[in-house]
Design a protein around this nucleic acid. Sequence first.
DNA 1: CAGTGGTCTAGACCACCAT
DNA 2: TGGTGGTCTAGACCACTGT
Lengths: 249, 249
Amino acid sequence: MGITQPETVPEPKYWHLKTVLSEALDSEFAVGEILPNERELAARFGVARATLRQALEQLELEGRLQRRRGVGTTVAPPRTVVAVGDGERSWPGGGPEIWQPVDSAEAQPPHAVARALGVPSDDPVHVVRRIRRSHGQPVAAELLYVPAATLPATAALGTLAGAARARAVLRELQRLPLDGQDRSVELGSARADDAKKLDRLPGAPVLLVTTRYFAGGGTAAVSVATYRADTCRLTFGDTGGPGMQLLAG
Amino acid sequence: MGITQPETVPEPKYWHLKTVLSEALDSEFAVGEILPNERELAARFGVARATLRQALEQLELEGRLQRRRGVGTTVAPPRTVVAVGDGERSWPGGGPEIWQPVDSAEAQPPHAVARALGVPSDDPVHVVRRIRRSHGQPVAAELLYVPAATLPATAALGTLAGAARARAVLRELQRLPLDGQDRSVELGSARADDAKKLDRLPGAPVLLVTTRYFAGGGTAAVSVATYRADTCRLTFGDTGGPGMQLLAG
DNA sequence: CAGTGGTCTAGACCACCAT
DNA sequence: TGGTGGTCTAGACCACTGT
């Protein structure tokens, strides 16, 4: 018996398909262009529709494609670069108005949040909902959890509702001295309500950015921001060098 | 005709399945425990295997499950918290040895990297490969791109290979004054070689952390680190407050 | 309404792992 | 070798979008 090749492992069809499609997107399609529909593409490549969809799903995950039910599959623009924090410690709602307050109410936080806040899980906290847009498109939805104990003047909130109440909570936060903050990023899937706000289907991949705000020797607030993973690239508090703007293009 | 319910939209089966399984994982299974196999589970829930798999895929994406071919599906431990950078600007390879150099060679960078470095795409650069482990498991693979023009003493590399060469490149970097850096995170899917290093299948979801290092008025190096998205939660340069360790548990 | 992507089925075969 | 998850098929129906 002669020496043979190490038996080239057969590449899965959907993986090969993804490569082919990816190259075609680079060379033959413009941003925003509509691809042939899935049944057509599957036939053209000689595979089942499910197999084609596996390739499309990956490309959508990588931000190369955008699929909308009832409409079609389009070539996605490059990911939107969104800055998360500015490297400075600051309360949410302080700087320029990137986030748009939606409403606020009292509710019981999820267990993980309650643990981070150091409050009992059945203790209601203020929940502020905000949404972030970029170029008109919603890119993130945020839930900000603030224990009643954190706010100096809770009483004034009683008469407010909706966005006005949200703004009031954020305004109260600014009065506290902020000791520091803490940020983490992980992959998640969109809950039904976030998905709707982000114009996606439930379960869509999202980047979860969790920020803990420290004040008065404890965790004064926790923010969980849900960013669309398909369309966003997150940048973080940069220790800026010279000419960073020039290199951005 | 009477006033009717707004026709409750039927929740997809896989979505409901995911919820049921998720609750079962919380209450009835311990970390590391092996679930019944997919055919068994599908039968038990009265759905096709493909539908069950859709639910399992989501749970794996969220870091709740771990699936290994030929072995089975196990309950995953909480995500590993990995620190990305320390808030200080520093060259890679400077601090404590979190990353383990693998090898180094000259190669043509991907277009996107070449653009960031400001060099022609067909200009070979030094590519250093490193791997990062946490609790014995590989969590990230990195490609560090360094243009020849960045390094003061390239000649000495000629006789070196493998990890020794990688260490030499990193050592040379330390001699340069670092002006600043720049970091972004986005979702991607693992290339075949990275997937193998991370003990995953190609296409597995990963968090791509891109760092640009600025020196001498330009981009002196670019690092692209590929973190397992299913098992990692990334934390970033914290503007630390008091007691952050205490709250970690 | 016609056309799109999203969900679901009931099979089949394959690659991998432990035994 | 037997059992696991991974890939693939060829259908079907549903939910949503635009006209």
